[in-house]
Amino acid sequence: DETGKFLVLALYDYQEKSPREVTAKKGDILTLLNSTNKDWWKVEVNGRQGFVPAAYVKFL
């Protein structure tokens, strides 16, 4: 159920650099879980949760 969740689009490829991050490919649609940090947003992609740089994604 996606009610109340926001989707964001990956603008660039991002390769995770730590276990707390997730890899995303340009064009991926990610479920935004938390955007309270202006630099790192928590997302879910391909069943995995983790952080990506906020500058790499935008709201749909």
Rank of each mutant, 00 (worst) to 15 (best):
D1G: 14
D1W: 14
D1M: 13
D1C: 15
E2R: 13
E2I: 13
E2W: 13
T3G: 13
T3S: 12
T3F: 13
T3A: 12
G4W: 12
G4L: 11
G4H: 13
K5P: 13
K5Q: 12
K5W: 10
K5A: 11
F6W: 14
L7I: 09
L7K: 11
L7R: 09
V8Y: 07
V8T: 02
V8S: 00
V8K: 00
L9Y: 12
L9F: 10
L9H: 02
A10W: 06
L11P: 00
L11D: 01
Y12G: 04
D13V: 06
D13L: 05
D13Y: 08
D13N: 06
Y14T: 01
Q15H: 14
Q15Y: 15
Q15K: 12
E16R: 11
E16A: 15
E16C: 15
E16K: 14
E16Q: 13
E16H: 07
E16Y: 04
K17Y: 03
K17Q: 14
K17R: 14
S18H: 13
S18C: 12
S18K: 05
P19M: 08
P19D: 13
R20L: 14
R20V: 11
R20Q: 12
E21P: 04
E21N: 03
V22Q: 06
V22F: 12
V22R: 00
T23P: 03
T23A: 03
T23I: 03
T23V: 03
A24E: 03
A24D: 02
K25H: 11
K25G: 04
K25S: 07
K25V: 09
K25P: 02
K25C: 12
K25A: 07
K25W: 08
K26V: 07
G27R: 03
G27D: 04
G27W: 05
G27F: 04
D28Y: 06
D28S: 07
D28Q: 13
I29K: 03
I29H: 04
I29S: 02
L30P: 00
L30C: 09
L30T: 02
L30R: 00
T31H: 10
T31P: 04
T31Y: 11
T31A: 07
T31S: 07
T31G: 04
T31N: 08
L32Y: 02
L33I: 14
L33W: 04
N34C: 13
N34F: 08
S35H: 09
S35L: 07
S35F: 12
S35Y: 10
S35D: 10
T36M: 10
T36R: 09
T36P: 03
T36S: 14
N37H: 11
N37W: 05
N37R: 08
N37Q: 08
N37V: 04
K38T: 10
K38C: 11
D39V: 13
W40H: 01
W40V: 01
W40F: 05
W41R: 00
W41N: 00
W41D: 00
K42R: 10
K42T: 07
V43I: 05
V43S: 00
V43C: 08
V43T: 01
E44Y: 06
E44K: 04
E44D: 08
V45H: 11
V45E: 01
V45N: 09
V45M: 08
V45Q: 06
N46S: 08
N46R: 10
G47I: 06
G47S: 04
R48S: 06
R48F: 05
R48N: 05
Q49M: 10
Q49K: 09
Q49T: 13
G50K: 02
G50H: 02
G50V: 04
G50N: 00
G50A: 03
G50P: 00
G50T: 03
F51G: 01
F51L: 08
F51A: 02
F51P: 00
F51E: 02
V52E: 01
V52L: 13
V52H: 01
P53V: 09
P53A: 06
P53S: 05
P53G: 06
A54W: 06
A54R: 11
A55H: 11
A55D: 09
A55R: 13
A55I: 11
A55Y: 09
Y56S: 11
Y56W: 06
V57I: 09
K58R: 13
K58L: 12
K58N: 06
F59P: 13
L60S: 05
L60G: 03
L60N: 06
L60Y: 11
